[in-house]
Nucleic acid binder design. Structure first.
Length: 317
DNA sequence: AAGCCACGCAACCGCCAAGGT
DNA sequence: TACCTTGGCGGTTGCGTGGCT
């Protein structure tokens, strides 16, 4: 494991440590402590540099190191702290007794980072990753332009973008629900191994995490059993209250329509100038879907194949 | 059985900050 | 003030291993 052994220009050994070297290091530190890492190798009779000794001790040999898999609680702690501290592994490690910064860093890079990406979150910002978010700078620029044209205060737009962020988290949440529901439906009756139960448990953790990204998290009591499209529908209605007033709709640059039985999410992007949506319905075509709606004045609106893309940008502008 | 590949993780590298001279 | 030493940190590397074909 680790890098291949080699010697640097000083003739000091590198690469994996042998049990004999470990023993020498442990005995030396137990006897003398590690006042000076530079002096320690000579004292211990090791042909290693002090830095290598320090690393081996702090990351592997220290007696208070906890080894083994990270618990769900530790995982949640890492996620929470990383969202606040970023890649400050040593700072994160101080909140996880027995875990080293190196171990946490490895766990992040091999597990948590991928998990967040799979869930559609940016692992650095912990915010939902969508085309909408990659276009956020442009949106801000557009909002600024709009402010200049309309004389609206910036705070309004900032609040709106904040609402969008929350809404996008909800979209991610629903998407995950759709995927989970689809998977579990497939597993129903054909999963004697009980794998479905494991999946459900993991989903609950994931949903809790997703919910924590929202300014108004979904009720935790709803996270007990998610096993049918009916329940997905229920959650979609919980997450996406229909806009009911002009004031409300201005906070909704994205609403969602969900068609039962289709593992697909559609996005409607009501322009702020449009009246509230009423009775939005989804129609499926051969290679696309469309969304239609009537407003209070019975004006029919129609969005063919709408996702958050250039078309959304155009509407936003 | 053999080859390939992806993953996990120990360990190295380079940079930086703090402290000493 | 400038330079040097040392320890610490985050990023990266690459070997060992297990699963898959």
């Amino acid at each position: 494991m680790g890098r291949s052994p080699c010697c640097d220009e000083n003739g000091l050994k590198k690469g994996p440590w042998t049990p004999e070297e470990d023993q020498k290091l442990i005995q030396c530190i137990q006897k003398h402590g590690h006042g000076s890492w530079r002096a320690l190798p000579k004292l211990a009779g090791l042909n290693r540099c002090g830095k290598s000794c320090r690393l081996r001790w702090t990351n592997y040999l220290r007696p208070d190191i906890k080894r083994g898999k990270f618990s769900p609680e530790e995982e949640q702690t890492i996620l929470n702290l990383h969202s606040i501290l970023g890649n400050k592994w040593s700072a994160i490690a101080t909140h996880l007794p027995g875990r080293t910064d190196n171990e946490i860093k490895n766990f992040w890079n091999t597990h948590l980072k991928k998990k967040l990406i799979q869930m559609g979150f940016d692992p650095m910002t912990h915010q939902p990753r969508t085309d909408f978010f990659s276009a956020l700078p442009q949106l801000i620029a557009l909002a600024n332009l709009n402010e200049l044209l309309n004389g609206r205060p910036w705070d309004d737009h900032a609040a709106r973008l904040q609402a969008d962020a929350d809404q996008a988290a909800k979209l991610q949440c629903l998407q995950y629900l759709l995927q989970s529901s689809s998977t579990m439906t497939t597993n129903n009756g054909s999963d004697p191994s009980g794998l479905g139960a494991t999946t459900a448990a993991a989903d609950l953790e994931t949903m809790s995490l997703l919910s924590s990204q929202m300014t108004s998290p979904m009720p935790s009591s709803g996270l007990q059993n998610i096993n049918s499209h009916e329940q997905v529908n229920h959650f979609s209605s919980v997450l996406f209250e229909p806009p009911t007033s002009q004031e409300n709709i201005e906070c909704y640059t994205a609403a969602v329509g969900f068609s039962q039985g289709e593992n697909r999410t559609q996005y409607v992007s009501p322009n702020a100038s449009l009246p509230p949506l009423a009775d939005a319905s989804v129609a499926h075509h051969e290679n696309a879907c469309s969304i239609s709606s009537s407003n209070e004045n019975e004006t029919h609106s129609f969005w063919p194949e709408l996702f958050i893309d250039e078309q959304f940008m155009a509407e936003f502008a």
